[in-house]
Write a protein that binds this DNA or RNA. Structure first.
Ligand SMILES: [Zn+2]
Length: 293
DNA sequence: AATGCTACCTGCGCGC
DNA sequence: TGCGCGCAGGTAGCAT
């Protein structure tokens, strides 16, 4: 299914990995590489491991047994015996399990397994990053993250705590990973639509009932995304090659000019926090105290 | 402390 | 047909 979206890579892939996409990849990887051994590790682009020397990075992982594949927000965590390999795909990072010799353009990292297969980290835009740490929870890149929205303990109070003392637009706050981990541009717009909250609403003006609604909507849209194996705008492959199809379930994201599925009014697009933002001006009203530009 | 803005990077669509 | 511009995205880092 196409959504009038026309940009994709030459290999036909166009996803923006947020929590549901990373979780989909995590589940596939878990079934594919758990208890496999890393026979070889090759850093093809030093930029990927900026924080460390490529050689040291490689040797630290070489020969290690993969004991778990986990996720924190949008970060993928491949546990080996005594270390954790943390990966962030950013926008264009992809993981493919395929023949170790089948190296395609833009491959940045090769994790060769104990057969002819390798996990290929392919990243056209080179924004993706990789780290190795002994203790993932306190690591610099995940230590500051907000609560996991799909954990049992996530409720409107934990959201309220993270918004305390702040005055930014709610969409800006949702894109800030310290507020809630894993929300990106797609699911921020979808969650705000589902909760009937205008994206420019200052967070200090959100009542507890609105925060409750938003909390529930965040959980709903993320779970829906996972249930549909993530959002893609073209011939998306997960690492196994099966397509995600959550794009067919989005209500407002990149639906500018199309009728709101709730009221029929045209979906609007604005730029907020330097990001495309889509909403229904009828279903998502600005509080009166916010002046219209 | 909180917030805003830019750099980073590349392929593709669009307009001329 | 060819070229160049602008867009898309998440995060770190810097400025205010
Ligand atoms: Zn509407």
């Amino acid at each position: 299914m196409l959504c009038g979206i026309s940009y994709m890579w030459t290999n036909g892939l166009a996803i923006m990995p947020e929590l549901p996409e990373v979780e989909t990849i995590r589940r596939e990887l878990h079934s594919q590489i758990l208890r496999r051994r890393l026979n070889n590790v090759t850093v093809l682009d030093p930029r990927l491991v900026q924080a460390s020397q490529p050689k040291a990075f490689e040797t630290r992982l070489m020969g290690a047994l993969i004991t778990n594949v986990a996720r924190r927000g949008k970060y993928l965590m491949i546990n080996v015996e005594s270390d954790v390999l943390i990966l962030h795909l950013m926008m264009s990072g992809r993981l493919h399990l395929r023949a170790r010799t089948d190296i395609r353009p833009h491959t940045r990292l090769l994790l060769t397994l104990d057969d002819d297969q390798a996990l290929h980290f392919v990243d056209v835009r080179r924004f993706g990053r990789a780290w190795i740490t002994e203790e993932a929870h306190s690591h610099e890149v995940v230590g500051h993250l907000g609560p996991e929205p799909l954990d049992a303990g996530f409720d409107w109070r934990s959201l309220a705590i993270r918004l305390r003392g702040r005055h930014v637009a709610i969409k800006t706050a949702l894109l800030d990973q310290r507020t809630v981990a894993g929300i990106g541009n797609i699911y921020a717009d979808e969650a705000l639509f589902a909760a009937r909250i205008h994206p420019e609403t200052p967070v200090n003006l959100l009542s507890p009932p609105k925060l409750r609604a938003l909390t529930a909507s965040i959980v709903t849209v993320l779970e829906s995304g996972i249930a549909h194996q993530g959002t893609t705008f073209s011939t998306f492959e997960t690492s196994e090659g099966s397509p995600g199809n959550n794009q067919g379930h989005l209500k407002v994201f990149r639906k500018t000019g199309q009728p709101c599925p709730s009221c029929g009014k045209n979906i609007r697009r604005i730029v907020l926090a330097q990001r495309s933002t889509h909403y229904c001006s009828n279903c998502q009203r600005k509080p009166r105290t916010v002046s219209t530009k």
